[in-house]
Design a binder for these strands. Structure first.
Lengths: 171, 171
DNA sequence: GAAGATTGAAGGGTCAATCTTA
DNA sequence: TAAGATTGACCCTTCAATCTTC
């Protein structure tokens, strides 16, 4: 194929067979894995993956509390998406919203006892799924490689690499 | 945390630090990468990633034609999703639908010349994005590792590994 | 009855506009 | 004016029901 495209100078660098294989595989993974990982969580615990992660992030935070902005960063979601999701979780009694006492613009999400209990009940199911479908399918070397690879790509995207704790400022 | 969960026998095997790092990274990647890869395709060519892939699969098929069932498998989408998407693409004149002459139940999607041209125009933009955000961020070794890792996980999910051509039957 | 495909309703995410407080 | 957050409309995907052909 001969392509012509203004912003591109000349002929683009197409992917090699190896590169193509990696990219096609990654696309397939990104398409299929999320709904598959989510299925047991939905059926057994009425949680979407994003909801579960939001609750998980809260559970690991001081006072089980986080400003929405911080929670949005940790879950890689938009503030708008988070707000909609918190509506649902709040209705279910799994968390509460309250204005920050320090800054009136800030809303804090607080995990309730019921929310913590629901999360604790769902966690073993979720971890088992992650092991079955991903972690236990890989060698320990591959697990490390995957961490490096995701870290490199996320770094390119300018994201904080989650888990690589280099000392976060509070809030 | 002490968890109790009926279907689980005893204490689940939680993730080690390395495993957790890999999993968190993968989740972040699956959340952030698709919309980021898609953005230039949407803005410059009015294509969603899924639409682009559907057209790409058609363009590489004999007669630029595929039964919807086959196209659904290649794009890792449901038949329902594909049907909705093809409605849009057909409206734009990028492909046609026609009943198979061999089996009246089968509908074939055929890429039009306009569809092929639109795809050819979008391809350099898309490849450049994939390189910038993923491939060129990784070492050649990492590219191979990524192919192996995605292959392993997809295999666990029972999917044909795309690109690993082991001789497909026609259609 | 099974396979391939279509349809329409329901639910979630995105985007732009808006609101409030600093 | 900017930052944090909310809202509602629009679009896409999913799911179940349906249709046609084998």
């Amino acid at each position: 194929m001969a392509h012509a495209h203004p912003p591109q100078g000349a002929e683009p660098r197409w992917l090699s067979d190896e590169e193509r294989q990696a990219w096609i595989g990654l696309v397939a993974l990104m398409t299929v894995l999320p709904p598959t990982i989510e299925a047991p969580l939905r059926q057994g615990h009425q949680f979407m993956l994003f909801e579960y992660h939001a609750l998980a992030m809260l559970s690991e935070s001081p006072e089980r509390t986080l400003p929405l902005k911080a929670l949005a960063r940790l879950t890689n979601g938009s503030l708008s998406r988070l707000s909609h999701v918190l509506d649902r979780l709040e209705t279910r009694g799994l968390l509460m919203r309250r204005p920050s006492t320090q800054d009136g613009r800030v809303t804090e999400a607080v995990l309730t006892d019921a929310g913590f209990a629901a999360l604790a009940e769902a966690a073993p199911c979720h971890v088992a799924t992650v092991r079955q479908l991903v972690i236990d399918v890989l060698t320990p070397d591959q697990v490390d490689q995957l961490a490096d690879i995701t870290g490199a790509v996320l770094g390119r995207l300018g994201l904080d690499i989650p888990g690589a704790d280099t000392g976060r400022t509070q809030g």
